[in-house]
Write a protein that binds this DNA or RNA. Structure first.
Length: 284
DNA sequence: ACCCAGGATCTAC
DNA sequence: GTAGATCATGGG
């Protein structure tokens, strides 16, 4: 499909727009997927569709009322890319069943969190995004990331810039990034981009905590969302309260919580965390 | 003015 | 190894 868009100078330019249709979609709700805190570049449009960016690709996503057909209007990326990005090959019903079998307390949280999926996001984008997330709130995290993309992203589709390449961010300075109101995270971002160019994609997920500005919580988010370690169990201020209330931990006993998650939830601890996080923030 | 936001670092004990 | 202060920024 080809659409004509008019630009500021009045010229008509043909923009290549592809539509991917995926049927038989289960365990998916776009609001849950995009607003559970795993990604920051998707926003609901007035008509209910979601406009967002994944790396250099931009997409308008919608799920029909029976929630069985996913429609993606994309600027690029082949069918496999988007199938992979939305994690359509993973059976979340089976994962939920396993979590509930191991802990009946998870039943309500899993039901309330119907439709959550862990997107397969780009590692570098996840790294930078969650460095920005520290001691920050979601609306401002999104503003910071859009400012980064607006300034350093090199391509643009449907009004959204691509996420900056590591080479570009590595070539900036913390003073320059300071103009984007990133606060003390500016230095972390430059150093992270430079380090990424040195070490590349981590063979060992445990090494992400070696980034300056990446502590245990952010590292677990990067592992879960950017490296697909489903056992990574991020513990933030909310999870401390939740683990305290549900399982009786002292809120200071983060180490105890991590060990418990490892033994109790096992390989899908990160998924359990997502359901719990969502449940306590949005339902209770 | 104070507190919080999907915290991390640095310092001191 | 662990408690406390400090770190930008914006919103309530």
């Amino acid at each position: 499909m080809v659409k004509g868009l008019s630009l500021n100078d009045g010229e008509k330019v043909l923009i290549k727009m592809t539509v991917h249709i995926f049927g038989g979609i289960r365990d998916m709700n776009l609001e849950q997927v995009f607003e559970c805190g795993q990604c920051f570049r998707w926003n609901k449009m007035e008509d209910g569709r979601y406009l967002g960016a994944a790396g250099e690709h931009v997409c308008i996503a919608s799920l029909d009322e029976t929630e069985s057909i996913l429609r993606l209007e994309v600027s690029g990326g082949d069918r496999d890319f988007w199938y992979n990005y939305f994690d359509l090959g993973t059976d979340y019903s089976a994962i939920k069943a396993g979590l509930i079998a191991g802990d009946p307390k998870m039943l309500e949280a899993c039901e309330a969190g119907y439709g959550i999926r862990i997107l397969r996001q780009d590692y570098f984008e996840t790294l930078i995004s969650f460095i920005i997330s520290q001691n920050n709130n979601i609306p401002r995290i999104k503003k910071c990331i859009e400012a980064l993309a607006e300034r350093y992203g090199e391509s643009e589709h449907m009004g959204m810039k691509s996420f900056p390449r590591p080479e570009v961010l590595a070539a900036t300075t913390s003073e320059e990034l300071g103009e984007l109101k990133l606060g003390y995270r500016s230095e972390y971002i430059v150093r992270a981009a430079q380090r990424y160019l040195e070490v590349g994609y981590p063979e060992d997920p445990e090494t992400v905590v070696d980034y300056h500005g990446v502590g245990p919580k952010v590292a677990n988010c990067i592992k879960l969302f950017g490296l697909r370690c489903f056992d990574a169990f991020p513990i933030d201020t909310w999870m401390k309260k939740i683990m305290s209330e549900m399982y009786g931990f002292k809120e200071s006993d983060v180490k105890g919580m991590q060990n418990f998650a490892e033994e109790h939830f096992g390989e899908y601890g990160g998924i359990a965390q997502q359901y719990l996080f969502h449940y306590f923030r949005n339902v209770r």
